[in-house]
Structures are given as structure tokens and as C-alpha cells.
Simulated assay, not measured.
Amino acid sequence: MSAQDSPHASGSRRPRQEHASHGKNPLRRTSDRVESWCSGLLLLVLVLGLPMASMSAGLTAYASAMRTVQAQSAQRHQVTARLTSAPEAAPGSATDEKHKAQVSWTGQDGRQHTATVRVPLNKTAGSTVRIWVDREGTVQDPPMSAGNAKATGWVMGGMTAVCIYAGLVAARKGTRWVLDRRRYAQWDAEWDLVEPPWSARFRR
């Protein structure tokens, strides 16, 4: 065995490295730990809470919209109405644009009803159109469809997700802002203690 390989060879030994245990970093301040905990909590809310909240909001909005669909479908029905006058178009109007015209129809109670509705420009007096009315014979818009209810659910779920994400980002920035203000205050206080003796060395 050579002298270089001998465990008793002369020379200084390498300093033994001591690894700080996890979470025992002496340079890590309390504010750093608080910031780390808050970041972990916000990340947990983002990963678990955001999907659950957005899905819950979307399903709730969809269920509410479907109740509206069922109610409107039960209250409204289509009837065939006859135009009593041709639609009048303003100059320069598009041919596929709908315009107001008078129509009349016989309700379920046998009474004659009249109303003003929007019909295509190619309709003439005496032609028929299909319109939606309620039980009282008042002209209404078509009832909401199941597709509209699904779209409402998706939109509400997406808006909820965006709002939660924006709230978490704001909370993250607000937490860092508060902690930074405290850090700056601590640095100022420590500098007030260190600066006088440190500056005095250069005044001698």
C-alpha cells in the first residue's frame, strides 16, 4: 500500500460536511416558513378545491336551467298564426332580417287573438307562421332548450374556476406583500443596531 493510499497519510483531512436536516435551515426565517405553508395550502386548494367548486357550480346552474326548461315547455306551446298584413321593411334592410307584422290566430279557448311579431321579409299577407304563446295567449319567446341548459352549466363552471383561480393568485400576492413588509421592517430594525458600530470603525 502506498503512502498516498494509507489512511494515516499526512495532510489535512477534508472537513466533514454536515447536511442540515429538512426544515432546519438556519437561514430560513419564520416568515419564509409561513410563506411556504401558505403556498402549499393555496396549491392544495387549487388542485382539489377548484375542480370540485367549478363542477358543483356548473351542475347547480345546469339543474336550475333544466327546471326553467321544463317550466317553460309546460307553459308555452306553438300555434299557427296568419299574417293580417305584410311586414314593412325599412330602406336598406337585409332580406333575411325579420320585421314586425300583425298576425291573428284562434286560441285553445276558441277566442281570436292578435299580436305583433317579427317575421321574415318574404312573408306576405295571408301566409302562416308558427309562433309561441303561453296559456293566456300572450306571444312568448321559444322555451329554453336542453342545449341552452348545458351551455349555462359549462359557462357557470368556467366562470367559477376563473374566479377561484384569480382569488388564489390575489391571496398569494397579498400574503407575500404582507410578509415582505414585515421583512423590510425587521431589516430596518437590525440595521439600526448594526450600522452605528459598523460606521464608527471608519470614523477613527
Rank of each mutant, 00 (worst) to 15 (best):
residue 4 Q to V: 07
residue 6 S to F: 00
residue 11 G to K: 06
residue 11 G to Y: 07
residue 12 S to I: 02
residue 16 R to C: 07
residue 16 R to I: 08
residue 19 H to I: 13
residue 24 K to C: 15
residue 24 K to I: 12
residue 25 N to P: 03
residue 27 L to Y: 10
residue 27 L to S: 05
residue 29 R to Y: 00
residue 33 R to Q: 13
residue 34 V to N: 05
residue 35 E to M: 06
residue 36 S to A: 15
residue 44 L to C: 14
residue 44 L to Q: 09
residue 44 L to P: 02
residue 49 G to L: 09
residue 50 L to A: 11
residue 56 S to R: 13
residue 60 T to D: 14
residue 60 T to A: 15
residue 61 A to P: 04
residue 62 Y to Q: 14
residue 62 Y to M: 15
residue 63 A to M: 08
residue 64 S to P: 03
residue 66 M to C: 07
residue 66 M to A: 08
residue 81 A to D: 07
residue 87 P to Q: 03
residue 88 E to M: 07
residue 91 P to T: 05
residue 92 G to I: 06
residue 93 S to A: 06
residue 94 A to C: 09
residue 96 D to T: 09
residue 99 H to R: 14
residue 101 A to I: 02
residue 101 A to M: 03
residue 102 Q to E: 11
residue 107 G to D: 10
residue 113 H to C: 00
residue 117 V to R: 00
residue 123 K to H: 15
residue 124 T to H: 15
residue 125 A to P: 04
residue 129 V to C: 06
residue 131 I to E: 06
residue 133 V to A: 01
residue 134 D to H: 15
residue 136 E to L: 12
residue 137 G to D: 03
residue 139 V to H: 07
residue 140 Q to D: 04
residue 142 P to Y: 03
residue 149 A to P: 00
residue 151 A to V: 09
residue 155 V to H: 03
residue 155 V to A: 13
residue 162 V to N: 05
residue 165 Y to C: 14
residue 166 A to D: 00
residue 168 L to W: 03
residue 169 V to F: 13
residue 172 R to T: 04
residue 172 R to V: 02
residue 175 T to I: 05
residue 176 R to H: 13
residue 178 V to I: 13
residue 180 D to V: 15
residue 184 Y to M: 14
residue 184 Y to Q: 15
residue 184 Y to E: 14
residue 185 A to Y: 12
residue 185 A to M: 13
residue 185 A to W: 09
residue 187 W to A: 15
residue 192 D to A: 13
residue 193 L to Q: 06
residue 195 E to R: 11
residue 196 P to K: 08
residue 198 W to C: 07
residue 200 A to T: 12
residue 203 R to D: 12
residue 203 R to I: 09
